[in-house]
Design a protein around this nucleic acid. Structure first.
Lengths: 122, 122
DNA sequence: TCGCATCGTTTACATCTGTAGTCAATAGGC
DNA sequence: GCCTATTGACTACAGATGTAAACGATGCGA
């Protein structure tokens, strides 16, 4: 569901998922802390996200307050699913095996994975 | 390491990872089984992959035999890592939790995950 | 009330991507 | 030896993306 969110647009979405509703300036301020973008760039990205119907804006006097229309969880789920399908034929365990072999699994990850599995087993 | 591989280019890479070295026609034949592309399109994608230095071609008479320069495992590892970093702050378990909550975990996945964890525990 | 600061909107432009046609070299058949 | 089919190279072009300047409305302070 909903159009593809590009890399740059995602940065803006993250800001909105973190706090919303908020103004364009407010978003830009947070975003430019990590990316060296101009205010105009952030505004363009907000427009494009509006066009893609993944955010909405409510007028507040002369400005707009932007808020996400899709949940981060939903986005993350669909992206994760896409990756698993694209690279692992839809199987999750090869992905984890891959990450494990890269030492990307922290002890906390391991403990939490055990809990997850326990929860799925009963 | 190495340039970004686009979605369409990845389809061609998959064909080369599966069998290589092979000719452009050979690749195209396999690829067009799943995508409705012309031979020219596949050749263009091969050129771009060459430009990105992720494949190489060895002359064989009047034609070329193409082969990957990067391993599928390496690509998959870096893409997986990118996703985990981008969406889960580098933590793997939230990703699995996410997939689990979407019922994307098959019983085989669960069994294999248990094995993976067992292997990491001793 | 008048100019300026502030927003959002429109326009711009280079690059990347998807998709493919055309061209030029060349090798093999007749 | 000449024509044709094959093959890689070059060119094309529309849409997406990254990045941003210019423009236009409008409300606020003087």
């Amino acid at each position: 569901m909903s159009e593809k969110i590009s890399e740059a647009e995602l940065v803006v979405m993250e800001a909105l998922w973190e706090t919303s509703p908020r103004t364009a300036n407010d978003v830009a301020e947070q975003v430019t802390a990590s990316r060296d973008w101009s205010l105009q760039t952030v505004k363009t990205l907000l427009s494009r996200l509006m066009a893609k119907d993944v955010i909405a804006a409510d007028q507040d006097g002369r400005r707009f307050l932007y808020r996400p229309l899709i949940q981060r969880d939903d986005y993350v789920a669909s992206e994760s699913g896409r990756l698993v399908n694209r690279l692992f034929g839809g199987r999750v365990s090869p992905l984890v095996a891959q990450l494990a072999s890269q030492d990307q699994l922290s002890p906390e990850d391991i403990a939490e994975l055990e809990d997850i599995l326990k929860g799925l087993k009963p």
